[in-house]
Amino acid sequence: EVPFKVVAQFPYKSDYEDDLNFEKDQEIIVTSVEDAEWYFGEYQDSNGDVIEGIFPKSFVAVQG
């Protein structure tokens, strides 16, 4: 069931425009499960802007 919160276990950096880049310990709200390997989610950056994109499930852990 979406949405749910995950926390980055590792930093994720990608050159693909659709990917969500983040640092370790970033909290991310997952709004869609793309497939067995990928989530789609969002978070607010330090400027208060909402950043969204896809990212690999293996880089995050589900909270709770």
Rank of each mutant, 00 (worst) to 15 (best):
E17L: 11
F22N: 01
I54G: 09
W38C: 09
K57F: 09
S14K: 03
T31Q: 06
P3K: 06
Q26Y: 03
I54K: 15
V62N: 09
K13S: 09
E52P: 02
Q44C: 13
V2Q: 05
K57L: 06
Y12W: 06
Y39W: 14
E42G: 11
A61L: 12
W38H: 14
E42I: 09
I28Q: 00
G53W: 04
F4D: 00
G53Y: 04
E37F: 14
E52G: 09
N21A: 08
I29N: 06
D19H: 15
E42D: 03
A61K: 14
K13C: 13
E17R: 11
E42C: 15
D25K: 04
F10G: 05
A61P: 02
G53A: 02
G41E: 00
Y16C: 15
E37S: 08
A36D: 14
Y12E: 00
S14P: 01
V6E: 01
W38G: 00
A61M: 13
D15N: 13
F4W: 03
F55P: 04
I29Q: 05
T31H: 06
K24S: 06
D15R: 11
E52M: 14
E52W: 11
E37Y: 14
S14E: 01
E1K: 12
S14I: 04
D49E: 10
L20T: 00
F4P: 00
D45A: 11
F4T: 00
D19F: 14
V2C: 12
G64L: 10
D18A: 14
G53F: 04
Q9D: 03
E37I: 09
S14A: 04
N47F: 09
S32K: 14
D18I: 11
I28L: 05
I51Y: 13
D45I: 08
K13T: 09
W38P: 00
Q9K: 14
V62F: 13
D45M: 10
Y39R: 01
D19T: 14
S14T: 09
P56K: 03
G48S: 03
F4H: 00
E23C: 10
V62G: 08
Y43M: 06
F22W: 02
Y39C: 05
Q26F: 04
D45W: 05
Y43F: 08
I51D: 01
W38Q: 05
A61T: 14
I51Q: 14
Q26A: 04
Y12V: 03
Q26T: 06
V33A: 07
E42W: 15
S58A: 11
D45F: 05
I28G: 01
F55K: 00
N21I: 06
G48V: 01
V33P: 04
E52Q: 15
K57G: 05
V33L: 08
E23R: 05
Q9F: 08
D25R: 05
Y43C: 06
V33D: 07
Q63A: 13
A8Q: 01
Q9R: 14
Y16G: 14
E52T: 15
E52N: 11
E52R: 15
S46T: 11
V30A: 02
V50P: 05
Y12Q: 00
